[in-house]
Design a protein around this nucleic acid. Structure first.
Length: 164
DNA sequence: TACTGGATTCACT
DNA sequence: GTGAATCCAGTAA
C-alpha cells in the first residue's frame, strides 16, 4: 500500500482523473475505493471557467480539496490538479450510499469546512496496485454547447454494484 | 440589493 | 421521463 504524494496531482487533470480510478480514498477512518471520477478543466461546464473567489483554489493549488454546494443541498468533493484551472470530481466510491457525488459527501460527512485543505490531512490517498478496468472515457456535450468532460469508471466495480 | 440557475437526488407518473 | 427541494455564488444594476 503506497501513499499517493502531492506530486501525483502535479500533472494534467484528465491524467490525474484516469489514474485516480481504483485508488484507495481514506476519509477519517473509512477506507474505500474510488470507482467513478470526472475531470473538469477550463470549459463552460466548470466553475473553473471563470476565475472567482470560489474557483480560486483551482487556479492556485494542486493536491488540495475543493468542496462546493450544488442545488442548495448537496456538496461535491474535488481534488485540484496542476492544470490551472482544473479539478477532478469524485463521483462514486465503493462504500454504501456513495454512488453519487452528493450522496458520497453526505455519507462521509464532507462539507464546505473541508474546502481548501491539503490532501494528506483528513483525506488520504493510497495505491494498493489494484488494476481497474476503465471503460468510460467519454466526451459529454452539455446543452447546446460542446463542453467537454472526461468521466472514468471502473467497470469491475460498477458491474457488481450501483451507478446510475 | 435582487435575481438567476446549478458538476444532484429522489419521489412521482 | 418530469419536476421539486433549497441556498448561495455570480452577475447586473
Amino acid at each position: 500500500m503506497k501513499h499517493l504524494e502531492k506530486s501525483f496531482f502535479k500533472q494534467d487533470t484528465v491524467e490525474v482523473a484516469k489514474q485516480l480510478v481504483g485508488k484507495i480514498l481514506q476519509v477519517d477512518n473509512i477506507k474505500t475505493r474510488i470507482i467513478e471520477v470526472e475531470a473538469y478543466k477550463q470549459d463552460k461546464a466548470s466553475h473553473a471557467y471563470k476565475r472567482t473567489p470560489r474557483s480560486e483554489l483551482m487556479y492556485t493549488t494542486y493536491g488540495h480539496v475543493y468542496v462546493y454546494l450544488v442545488y442548495g443541498m448537496y456538496y461535491c468533493l474535488n481534488f485540484t490538479t496542476d492544470t490551472k484551472p482544473g479539478a477532478v470530481l469524485i463521483r462514486a466510491v465503493d462504500y454504501p450510499n456513495c454512488n453519487g457525488p452528493g450522496k458520497l459527501c453526505k455519507t462521509l460527512n464532507i462539507t464546505k469546512k473541508d474546502n481548501g485543505v491539503p490532501i494528506g490531512d483528513r483525506f488520504k490517498l493510497f495505491d494498493d496496485n489494484y488494476k481497474p478496468k476503465i471503460i468510460a472515457s467519454e466526451r459529454i456535450g452539455i446543452k447546446e454547447d460542446k463542453h467537454l468532460k472526461w468521466r472514468f469508471i471502473d467497470k469491475n466495480t460498477i458491474d457488481k454494484k450501483y451507478i446510475k
